[in-house]
Write a protein that binds this DNA or RNA. Structure first.
Length: 434
DNA sequence: TCTGGGGTCCTAGGACCC
DNA sequence: TCTGGGGTCCTAGGACCC
């Protein structure tokens, strides 16, 4: 463990550790033949590109492009596509995070592939620490990371993108090692939307006020910025100056909102089919809720036709409130279908649907009387479904319309799936001796 | 033919209260 | 006929993130 306790508070810094092209790098861990090749990972249904290796970026492939638009061209440039394998990524992610805990007592897991760490030390010590972290994750997992270090999360983000872009830094960038003049030059060269928290809309409005670069925002008047853009942009401004306003948080294990939503492999066109969909989705969303030990007080249920079709875009959604907070799949299904099915129209081509649960709270906080406990919940139906599916597969049991043995036509398509090598015994990687 | 999924935080405005 | 002002809570929607 890096001992930071004896160092003064003024040497406290924030490091952002981020796995390079995370999904693509995970694919490479168990398929070394992908090393050095352009690789993309596709969203569910093999729809769009959601992750790209550096070689794929160099070919000009863009994040979010639909796979069907480049699949014919891909072989001619050696571009390899993989379906997303979230089981594998999730497992490697938790291994990365546990390694990071060896380097700091305070780690905030920010997303599947990045974390903020509290670190202390002189600028040189912190650069050395960055290389240690990088080497540990490379050696233990075979995943490449970059480390950015600054006085605030926003500075750490900026440093991290520097570490990624500038080959001379070898993947570690500590802003404290640059002179103020050098930092000015860096900030002057970067458009304001390179900042964490400033995207297209805000940067357009900032531009119209004459704020074009990161330096422009850093040096702007905070009061004026707050008045025009609110506290969020003002915080970014202070963070750029090195005042940390966005505190390091603990890991958020319990979500305030839980959603299950999927696009269909082929459109759903009738209420009857939509009812099947909701039955499956209710089961899955309630499983997520039970997994974090919560109950929900309300839900939103939605469906949508394609934005890209000739027919007018139609996306009905409805809310429902439970009389008693619940995680019971039967209650969730009843509520979802009663509100959504009345606004779903036979004959339309729905391409997606979802169920979102709100007012999520810990189950233990509701010590309500037996009288008010939904009858299915009192029989632990949700847990029974979880157990049977765990043992006999996702289609072995289901609620009402979802209780079919075979997959439905609208179920997800993943044609280029890699092995779930770290979580399934029957999908272990095979090593071939030469 | 084929265009992702799962979150967070903030704000403005309405409802309601005294 | 006249019709305040301040506070809180809730919700929908916007913007952002990965």
């Amino acid at each position: 463990m890096f001992d930071s306790a004896s160092l003064p508070e003024s040497q406290r810094r924030i490091a952002l550790v981020d796995v390079n092209s995370f999904f693509a790098s995970c694919e490479r861990v168990f398929d070394p033949s992908l090393e050095g090749k352009p690789v993309v990972v596709l969203s569910n249904n093999d729809g769009c590109v959601v992750a790209l290796s550096k070689e794929a970026k160099a070919l000009g492939v863009k994040m979010g492009i639909p796979w069907f638009k480049i699949s014919a061209w891909a072989p001619s440039v050696g571009l390899v596509a993989k379906s997303s394998n979230y089981e594998l990524y999730g497992d490697l992610s938790s291994r990365v995070m546990s390694i990071l805990h060896e380097f700091s007592a305070h780690v905030e897991v920010y997303s599947v592939d990045e974390a903020f760490l509290e670190v202390k030390g002189t600028p040189e010590e912190l650069v050395a620490l960055g290389y240690d972290i990088k080497a540990a994750i490379q050696n233990k997992l075979g995943l490449p990371v970059c480390v950015g270090i600054g006085r605030s999360k926003t500075q750490a983000k900026l440093a991290n993108s520097g570490a990624k872009k500038s080959a001379g830094l070898n993947g570690v960038c500590n802003l404290d090692t640059f002179s103020p003049e050098h930092i000015d030059r860096i900030m002057e060269a970067l458009p304001v939307d390179n900042i964490w928290g400033i995207a297209r809309r805000l940067s357009k409005r900032l531009n119209s006020m004459g704020i074009h670069t990161i330096k422009d925002l850093r040096d702007a008047d905070p009061v004026r910025i707050k008045k025009k853009f609110g506290v969020v942009v003002q915080r970014s401004l202070y963070e750029l100056r090195g005042i940390d306003c966005i505190k390091l948080e603990g890991e958020r294990l319990v979500k305030n909102q839980v959603m299950y939503s999927r696009s269909f492999a082929t459109p759903v066109t009738t209420r009857k089919q939509m009812e099947e969909v909701l039955a499956v989705y209710a089961q899955r969303v309630s499983k997520r809720l039970r997994k974090q030990g919560s109950v929900a007080g309300a839900l939103t249920c939605f469906a949508g036709t394609s934005r890209f079709a000739n027919e007018p875009f139609h996306s009905p959604y409805r809310n429902a409130v439970f009389s008693v907070p619940t995680n019971d799949p039967v209650e969730i299904l009843k509520a979802a279908s009663s509100v959504l099915l009345e606004c779903v129209e036979d004959g339309r081509k729905y391409v997606r649907a979802g169920i979102m649960l709100h007012d999520v709270s810990p189950k233990t906080s509701h010590q309500y009387l037996d009288l008010f406990t939904p009858v299915h919940e009192s029989r632990q139906l949700g847990e029974v479904l979880d157990t049977v599916m765990e043992k006999h597969g996702a289609f072995s049991i289901g609620l009402g319309a979802a209780g079919f043995k075979s997959p439905r036509h609208w179920e997800m398509k993943r044609e280029m799936l890699s092995l779930r090598a770290t979580t399934r015994w029957d999908e272990l990687a095979t090593v071939h001796a030469k």
